[in-house]
């Protein structure tokens, strides 16, 4: 491993330990001799959450042999991530729960066809993304049939403020500010087209590597990067409009 990277990672760890685990509050430092920055490194740290050796495999093999109970640890490991992706793309909590359930059941039924060519989580993400796409298509066709004069409420219909995890208890003003920012991000993500939304969610929210995103979305590396670039610029502009100067 790159010694510079190790050094940086150690610094990030230290900062995270001393500043209530929030990387955002840290000063971003350019490390000598490279273009790597702390946000990138924090991302790499995130990528490292996906282990080099897929520990899911042993459970997958058991499932393939017909042991349904072996699916429980897999579910425990991945359900949160999958639900999060579904929720962020669909922007509707109930629908996200529904779609994730469907996706997990579909994954279990198709587990025999899993060949371990990619990580199990990548394979699961692919199933979830496809299920979400199908749901979006259904929603679109349903919308076309619905009355156009249907009054949309100011609040996003599927927003779930109560179900969002709270990591710490700050003062009420900070909480409110953070809540507003989150809501703004949520709204801005919704404004993105589906293709851009998928990439930015998988990369910046889920912290997946470019390789994984390529596999999940089945698109070339260049496309991932260009979509991500455009998505970030759009989000930046959107957030600037809603929040003001970031």
């Amino acid at each position: 491993m790159d010694p510079l990277f190790e050094e940086a990672a150690a610094k990030v760890k230290k900062i995270m330990n001393t500043s209530s685990g929030c990387v955002m509050d840290c000063t971003i430092k350019r490390l000598p001799g490279g273009t790597k920055t702390l946000p990138e490194m924090s991302k790499r740290m995130k990528d490292k959450n996906t282990p080099a050796v897929d520990t899911d495999l042993e459970y997958v093999v058991l499932c393939q042999k017909g042991n349904a109970e072996a699916f429980a640890p897999l579910l425990k490991r991945h359900s949160g991530k999958m639900l999060n992706v579904a929720y962020r793309i669909l922007a509707d909590y109930d629908e996200a729960c529904d779609v994730t359930q469907e996706a997990f059941l579909a994954a279990f039924r198709a587990i025999g066809s899993f060949k371990a060519e990619s990580a199990f989580s990548t394979w699961l993400y692919r199933i979830v993304v496809n299920s979400v796409r199908n749901r979006l298509k259904q929603r679109q066709s349903r919308k076309q049939h619905e009355c156009a004069s249907f009054d949309e409420t100011a609040e996003s219909p599927g927003g779930c403020t109560s179900c969002l995890a709270r990591t710490d208890e700050g003062n009420p003003q900070q909480e409110m500010e953070r809540g507003e920012r989150e809501k703004a991000v949520h709204v801005c993500i919704e404004t993105l087209e589906r293709d851009y939304r998928e990439v930015v969610i998988l990369r910046d929210i889920q912290g997946l590597s470019y390789g994984e995103i390529q596999e999940i979305l089945n698109i070339p590396d260049g496309t991932v990067k260009s979509r991500l670039s455009r998505a970030r610029l759009s989000l930046k502009d959107c957030l600037k409009k809603i929040i003001g100067e970031l």
């Binding site: 996200a96 179900c163 957030l239």
Partner: peptide
């Protein structure tokens, strides 16, 4: 912007 995205709390 990227930090805001990264710090979005995971849905429960």
């Amino acid at each position: 912007t990227v930090q805001l995205l990264e710090n979005l709390p995971p849905v429960e």
